[in-house]
Design a protein around this nucleic acid. Structure first.
Lengths: 146, 146
DNA sequence: ATAAACTGTAACTGAAATAGTTACTTATGG
DNA sequence: CCATAAGTAACTATTTCAGTTACAGTTTAT
């Protein structure tokens, strides 16, 4: 799972709780990363219709949808994330051994099965579910930018 | 998912189909990696009781258990794999904002849920299932070392 | 016994993936 | 038309992961 997913979920939670327009610099401060990275991620969320973006003075990002209706699966798909990545492939398709030549393809099937299982799980978690998991037993209401 | 998992599954399938002692060099050839890496992975499988290892002349690795009874979950656990890794954590636990300070922990829960879903899926796939996925419609019986 | 062969393991090197940075273009609103 | 912020591309730095080398520890054959 790429860090972009964490950036996206973090931003969506923050935007929902602030309930106002926030620019990439403020988001980057809270997420602890840089504004360019935030913009890159938010652009994808905008294309998926999960946030609204406005350039110019007083511009920034704003939530569009109810946090309860936005699932982490939608976020992952908006980013084009593949939860379980192949990274390295064993064997060699050119070899005349059915194990060596076929293993990479067989493992792709395994990774896909795992990815599907992850997506199914993510479809059952909403942004508001994540909010509920934030410091569940501490005094709430602390929402600062620094 | 680390490439070690692919190495382990590949080796277990190969060992099962060869049904004899194979050394790390021959395994490395078939997997297309180097012998030291193979040994590092196989040592873990041995500790988990999934293979037998013998040093010395005529030594090498041998399967111990029926391929139908070895699940990919057992393999992943033998390697200490975490299917979905955190990689990068957003926010900062020291910040006085409940979003920034709590997000990393909340996301850990999400990753854990995904990891559990993956493991559950892996527990339903055996080494022999992987074998069945190798070149399902080609002439079988091709089992060479090069 | 002793030599040969193979595992187990650690240290180092090299390559690939990913996060950070800078800078520029485009769009919006006063 | 100017200030501000998104969108985006190119580059750098860092980290992670695979490859390599080397050597100590075991076991078998003779």
């Amino acid at each position: 799972m790429t860090g972009e997913f964490a950036v996206a979920v973090h931003a969506l939670v923050y935007l929902d709780m602030r309930a106002e327009v926030v620019d990439s610099e403020a988001l980057a401060k809270n997420i602890c990363t840089n504004p360019a990275r935030v913009r890159k991620v938010m652009a994808k969320l905008r294309h998926a219709g999960l946030v609204d973006a406005r350039p110019g003075a007083e511009g920034g990002y704003r939530t569009v949808r109810d946090a309860r209706s936005v699932t982490l699966r939608q976020v992952a798909e908006a980013l084009g994330e593949h939860p379980v990545s192949a990274a390295w492939r064993s064997g060699d398709p050119e070899m005349r051994c059915m194990v060596s030549s076929g293993m990479a393809r067989a493992m792709d099937g395994v990774y896909e099965a795992m990815g599907d299982a992850c997506m199914e799980r993510l479809s059952r978690i909403s942004i508001s579910d994540v909010e509920a998991r934030l410091a569940p037993r501490s005094a709430c209401g602390l929402l600062k930018t620094e």
